[in-house]
Amino acid sequence: MSMGMVYALVGAAVAVLFAGMGSSIGVGTAGQAASGVVSQDPGKFGKVLIMQLLPGTQGIYGLLVGFITLSKIGLLGGGAADLSPETGLMILAACLPVGLVGLVSGIHQGKTSAAAIGIIAKKPEQFGKAMLFPAMVETYAILSLLISILAVSAIQV
């Protein structure tokens, strides 16, 4: 296997690993808050569950970029491409945005979701407004996803 392929695989791994870590931390934090509310008021389960799920999207974005990368380098189709080290490094660089931004935004979205769950605990009728705060963090995860997808797609293999 060429070094280029190794770099490209590292890129796919970075996208999936870091974004997944961010999501798992974020979903975990929001889950603690959700459990706190449901332990007192089970009727709010549906609303707090949605809040808990919000930081989970970064992991999905990482997975998506990982799939595109694997598909790009031919690993999914069964015919691995012969990648130069430069091309491999370019793919690695293209995967970094979704990995790193996914990690940071996942953690912070989890914290924001936990805080927003506090709003739902006290004022469930403000669910729409409460959901906007963690959703704002999502913007940056989407931006990084876009850049990673565009960059991976644009690299000539």
Binding site: G36, V37, S39
Partner: peptide, 16 residues
């Protein structure tokens, strides 16, 4: 800080 996340959320529900 995370260790208080559950507690604070439950307190928010109790504050009602």
């Amino acid at each position: 800080n995370t260790n208080y996340t559950f507690a604070v959320a439950r307190i928010r529900a109790l504050e009602v």
